[in-house]
Design a protein around this nucleic acid. Structure first.
Lengths: 187, 187
DNA sequence: GTCTATAAGCAGATAGAC
DNA sequence: GTCTATCTGCTTATAGAC
């Protein structure tokens, strides 16, 4: 009974990369097999329910990374601006400096949408809550905090779309740099 | 030699709707056939190079709508704020009040990206130019105008992604309402 | 200009050997 | 746990009748 050739974490990272590049419908089992270096049958050994289960595992895995790189820094104690700068660094890493598409975007399209829409919604509202709470902690009134939190999420998603369309990540980099100001700054 | 059953315009509208719903890779010829009400062979009669040509025609057609609904109002003469409000109404219609995904997003994913990336880039830079020129005409300095133009494009794209993820269009509606302020308003 | 029928290949998924 | 081989159905695309 030989051990796994690569750890499941690494498999999930490679599956995530393939889904990010091709989208859910464009990521065929053959491509996922290539991307992981595992044969198709090996993939089915890991994920009995096929592509859908692979996507669900990727979603959970990527969600864990997001939690660690972005949510944890935001929910620490200490100066709000510093926490936002740490989250910006986390977002930069999480999105491959702006080169990687967001699962929130990709899994909202085509057959993935039927599967993931409820979860996409709760990711957005969860992220917005954390941002809004932080803004309020920094003295911003509730209404403004919620609006700005929404604006930040919108800006991150939009910047990734624009980066993909233009082939340049400057819009994304700028959004991250302005992140503390966008959430806490003057109107 | 019977005439076409539905005009090519209508075919393109239905193809566009199908691409918007399923993405490029998810939009199979069968689905495109269903969406248009034409048999597969009829679609190939219209578009000899198959799906790629359908997508290219949709891209051009949708680009024409965008020109008409958004660019024309922005490049008219008259009060900049009024022109931006007209463009906001155009964007609202162009994106089905926030319910439709943007081709800029969808065609940046998977196999469509290989085909369309250069054109996506020029759509973004073109739209940004028009917005930036308008802001400068309204007295905004060049650097600020360019930054705000980029922010506006980012916000529209992001709002559409968030709308799709949450199933709510309020973020999109708000971005449109704030459009004049986002481009011309105080920092 | 539209259709039905069909070709050739790739999709997702499984069986069974090692 | 991995592989090769294979199955079924759907995919793109075409041929040819009307």
């Amino acid at each position: 009974m030989p051990a796994a050739i690569i750890p499941k974490e690494a498999v999930l990272d490679r599956l995530a990369a393939a889904f990010r590049q091709h989208g859910y419908d464009g990521a065929s089992i053959s491509r996922l097999s290539e991307a992981t270096g595992l044969g198709k049958a090996s993939l089915y050994h890991y994920f009995r329910n096929g592509k859908q289960e692979m996507a669900e595992a990727v979603f959970a895995h990527v969600g864990g990374n997001f939690q660690e790189l972005v949510i944890v820094p935001l929910t620490r104690t200490g100066d709000p601006t510093r926490r936002l700068r740490a989250a910006a660094r986390g977002l930069d890493e999480f999105y491959g400096r702006g080169d990687w598409s967001c699962i929130l975007d990709l899994f909202g399209i085509g057959s993935a949408r039927q599967i993931f829409q409820p979860q996409l919604r709760s990711v957005v509202t969860g992220f917005e809550s954390v941002l809004s709470d932080l803004a309020q902690e920094a003295g911003v009134d509730r209404i403004t905090a919620r609006r700005r939190a929404e604006d930040v999420v919108v800006a991150i998603q939009g910047a990734l779309v624009v980066a993909r369309a233009t082939g340049e990540r400057k819009a994304f980099t700028r959004v991250l740099k302005e992140l503390p100001n966008r959430l806490l700054g003057i109107d």
